[in-house]
Design a protein around this nucleic acid. Structure first.
Lengths: 282, 282
DNA sequence: TGACGTTTGAAACCATCGTTTCACAAATAT
DNA sequence: ATATTTGTGAAACGATGGTTTCAAACGTCA
């Protein structure tokens, strides 16, 4: 922070007058104060006059307050050097980079499904079939994915919802969940703190939880539910990839469809009829 | 840092005058400058007059420089002591047989990107970079995909929105669009009748339209916009697949990132800082 | 108690900063 | 080309911050 100033204060602290000690205390308590505040403001914080403050710094050996400010700034710049973002000349190789990105997506997909245990999707389909209600939950980017899942599954069965936490009123939505309901959790990093509480609630409610997540979280997820679908999500950069998650959702739907072909067929026919009646599509 | 100030700068950066951009650059390069320096000193560093600097902060929406200082100080006091950087490791293991569905997904992806014209993504990235605002639009399942697109791109640039037609009040949302705005339309079958009207509106508004769609619609789409990204969406059954569409969105983002690496890096750092301040993630 | 040095804040004073005005140049429309 | 808008810095201006002065309050010691 402003180490030199602090040292000088400590050095003289005993010999300072009582008003000056007030100022000293303020500065010792929050050492960065001198970087951001004016001398007048410091006087206010210490409850002494501007004059005393001026004298204070003079007594410490500074020519004027300006010298104090500059010294503090100097130290700061030395300590916290530029946190600049390195610009790398990438645009030239963009074409190549793009194809690499696609290849990585393909590899993610391939690996994910290679490693997928063959009994998992049928079990999940069965659980989904038995559930009174199905709830999709996703935060951040996964909110969109959850929406897609809900929209896809609502074509397959009734009572498919998304937990949105609209207006932060989670309670209202959670109150509608019940035992044997299924919660489909879609979660990549970063994970909100809220998640933990929601999962605790879901467990208490005796909901079944299906988690679609990255490998990093898969292990943890296993502790609160045995239906975990880990996805490979390797990327070269800052942008997470959701293609694998979306494909996984579709596979779940396909599995469900396989187990409930007749019922689903009925339902889709009914929905089509309604849509026709509404006459919304072309 | 001074996140709010930085965000405001980024938001307006393109619309700033050349002198103002000098100041903006100084501040973006070293974001803590505003905490320690006077406006006059900033003017000196940027090589512009004091007057221009005063105007600069005014146009950013601040009442005066005092407000800027106080805001920066406030953020500084709230800020957490340390920042975290983490990398995720990717455990690799062995695989097993692929289902036909997965193979089809892979084939869709592969074909789509094989047929992708190499100049398209750079052009799209440029258009997205020049747009005052970006709007995502998707109906049905594509609503979720649009949401995902919005959430992904809002990490890359300011003013990214989704047209939701909340409460069927399309007019209210459309009224906010303007010329040179970009509309990213995500559309598979079935298509609502409303779409035609919305597109007509978008054309009249002189919005640029980017369409991510299936091959069936691609030809039609070419008539109202020249930025069409056709996706292979073959499936064996009733369930549409969105993995390719989602991958395409991500590629658009990657292309954008490639063309605006520095700016985006800045933005992401700023957003991270804010998230850290909010302390919502674990 | 009274003389003397010390400490203090109010207010006068001065310096610097930030804002506004204004004239002029540059860009853009007409 | 001409008018109009837009962008800019020099300089005047006002506000604020920092310093100094000064008189009053306080302590201390004969």
């Amino acid at each position: 922070m402003a180490s030199r100033l602090i040292l000088r204060i400590q050095e003289r602290q005993r010999r300072l007058t009582s008003s000056e000690q007030k100022i000293a205390q303020i500065l010792l308590d929050n050492q960065s104060l001198v970087e951001t505040h004016t001398a007048t403001e410091l006087a206010g914080l210490a409850g002494v006059s501007k004059a005393t403050t001026a004298r204070f710094f003079r007594t410490l050996g500074y020519a004027d307050f300006e010298e104090v400010r500059l010294q503090a700034r100097e130290e700061r710049n030395r300590r916290e050097p530029y946190a600049r973002f390195e610009s790398r000349g990438e645009p030239a190789s963009l074409g190549r980079a793009l194809s690499e990105h696609v290849e990585l997506e393909l590899r993610n997909l391939t690996r994910t499904f290679e490693e997928l245990r063959s009994d998992l999707l049928p079990r999940i389909a069965a659980v989904l079939g038995a559930a009174p209600r199905v709830w999709f939950l996703g935060f951040g980017d996964e909110y969109g994915a959850a929406r897609l899942g809900r929209s896809m599954f609502s074509r397959l069965r009734h009572d498919v919802h998304q937990i949105e936490g609209a207006g932060q009123d989670w309670a209202a939505e959670l109150s509608m969940t019940g035992p044997r309901d299924v919660l489909v959790l879609l979660s990549f990093e970063p994970r909100p703190k809220l998640l933990r509480a929601l999962l605790a609630h879901a467990r208490t409610t005796r909901m079944q939880i299906i988690t679609v997540t990255d490998h990093a979280f898969a292990a943890q997820a296993q502790r609160f539910c045995d239906l975990v679908l880990p996805c490979h999500v390797a990327t070269y950069g800052v942008l997470p990839t959701h293609a694998t998650m979306v494909a996984m959702l579709r596979l779940m739907a396909v599995a469900y469809l396989g187990q409930n072909a007749e019922e689903v067929g009925q339902r889709i026919a009914t929905l089509d009829a309604i849509n026709e009646e509404l006459d919304l599509s072309e």
